[in-house]
Amino acid sequence: MKRVFYASPLVPSELIRAHGFLPMMGAGGSFRGSGPVPDAAGVCAFLRAFVNEACASDEAAAVVLTTECDQMRRGGELAAVHCDVPLFLMDVPATRGAPAVQAAYVGELRRLGRFLVALGGTRPSDEDIWDAMAEADQSRRTSFPSVALVEGVPLALLGGHVSGRNGELAAEIERCGGRIVLDGTDRGARTRPAPLRARSAPDDPYDELARVYFDALPTVCERPNERLYDWLRAALAESGARGLVLLRYVWCDLWHAELAELERAFDLPVLDIDLCGEELSPRNRTRVQALIEALQVRT
């Protein structure tokens, strides 16, 4: 089955699946091969790795980017010109609440559907989409986040397209005597879609997708982004985290700009980890170790 690569949690994977493709969420910034997006000052390492990897993949039917950030918009433009893999740039509104804005998101989902059909995908009925949604919802309900069996200083993660639980960061945190009790990255609890409502015909599946994704997921790029802070406040209180680790890519303005406000808003030490790729550099390891040391001393 051909794959559709996507990066944003606001792209419903079940919609891709309903059209007969395998959804592949971008894993992180570790791809080092060349591609349409150059390795240049100001270019996000995640964008570069994600787009270049997708463009290099023999199994890629398409790449879906969103307008949530400038990097994705411009990177998508370059990829559209220099890459043979078809690219879809989905316009995700930054504001929330207005019916017209939600309608715009729904319109983009439908447009994505048409794009996938034009690629040779199946044209799903509303029933097919509901089924795919139900399957995805069921899968989410039954995949519980793993309970941390290790002891250690409880930490929360926050950030964008980074792998919170897996990889070197989690290992380093545990090695230094910490444990991750909250994953607020784009791959964690914060971007878990809302549970599906009991369906009552003739509900439009696209409206329900908008409710489950667009209305439900707090993001850093929405304006205002108060929902992100509301979510984080509640999640931190529930998790018992004693420190917050902000994971961001070096050129990501959206997350970087939140650092000062995060420090102000929560009575927790906030550690800034800036990534050039997925790997954890020695200096970032030192930062992680220093945070855990500081919290251990204060225990």
Partner: peptide, 22 residues
């Protein structure tokens, strides 16, 4: 907001956090 540049969006959001209604 929306199809604007990230840093302006971030700076304006910071302004709001400093107490301005936007």
């Amino acid at each position: 907001v929306g199809a604007v540049c990230d840093d302006f969006s971030a700076i304006a959001q910071r302004l709001e956090k400093l107490g301005r209604n936007i």
